[in-house]
């Protein structure tokens, strides 16, 4: 017995409209393929432009835009160093870029004719893989190959070390945990943002009667977008902190 296919409600965006307009041409397929990347690229360009304008003329007494950029950087630095201590300073650019990128992509979908790229698992997994690679690189760099392996085996000493089985079991569990991290990290973000987008798309189809609910949901979606970006970055910070603490 075939299960009925449930169509996913989706609000039209700039790329899908262009896609429809160019239907039948190679451009339409190209746009369909790179839809999320186009929006994430727009976000990246906006972030670079805003940062460039805010700090192109750096002064000891900042202007409004520079002050806003500095406030954001200071808040991120304070957050990361608060979790990891002074050694966390070198991870601030990475975690900060992740945060501004993810929160911008999350909120971008609220603008008419735009889309949240983070509703695509490919996009969030790409970010999670970057985190995974950087965390593993930091682990090997800080602890060394054997030191990291030792940490993954929960530092077996004495009888437990000679038992071999327990350290290997711990190593297996930790390796699986490490491999699962990018999947959970990316799926959590993707699913929340995708769910938010779906909610707004469904409510938008209610017509004028659904406007109050739509406005209320938009408020909730904004909170969820900020929280999800924060959760992603907080978990990333904790992954790095575990490595740093292991070394100490």
């Amino acid at each position: 017995m075939n299960t009925p296919e449930i169509s996913q409600p989706e609000l039209p965006n700039l790329v899908t409209l262009l896609e429809k307009a160019l239907e039948g041409t190679p451009w339409a397929a190209y746009l369909a393929l790179w839809e999320n990347i186009i929006f994430s690229g727009i976000i990246a360009a906006i972030i670079v432009t805003v940062f460039w304008f805010s700090i192109r003329k750096r002064k000891m007494i900042p202007g409004r835009l520079q002050a806003a950029a500095e406030l954001f950087v200071w808040a991120l630095d304070d957050f990361v160093c608060g979790v990891m201590g002074p050694k966390g300073r070198r991870f601030v650019p990475f975690i900060g870029t992740l945060f501004i990128y993810i929160i911008s992509m999350n909120l971008f979908g609220l603008i008419p004719l735009m889309k949240s790229s983070t509703s695509s698992w490919s996009v969030t997994l790409a970010l999670a893989l970057c985190v995974f690679v950087y965390v593993q690189y930091t682990g090997f760099k800080e602890l060394g190959f054997f030191g990291y392996a030792d940490a993954l085996m929960e530092k077996p000493r004495g009888f437990i070390a000679f038992s071999v089985f327990i350290p290997l079991l711990m190593l297996f569990i930790h390796v699986v945990t490490e491999l699962v991290k990018p999947i959970t990290l990316s799926l959590r973000l993707r699913s929340n943002i995708w769910g938010d987008d779906m909610l707004l798309a469904v409510l938008a189809n209610f017509g004028l009667g659904g406007v109050p609910l739509l406005l209320f949901s938009t408020f909730l979606v904004i909170i969820a977008a900020v929280v999800q970006a924060g959760v992603f970055c907080l978990l990333t910070t904790i992954y790095f902190a575990l490595i740093i603490l292991e070394k100490e």
């Binding site: 790179w34 990347i37 670079v48 790229s117 490919s122």
Partner: peptide, 14 residues
């Protein structure tokens, strides 16, 4: 395609 492009896009931005 999206995965690789997104990784490259993020790394460039970073």
């Amino acid at each position: 395609n999206e995965l690789v492009a997104q990784i490259i896009s993020f790394l460039i931005l970073f």
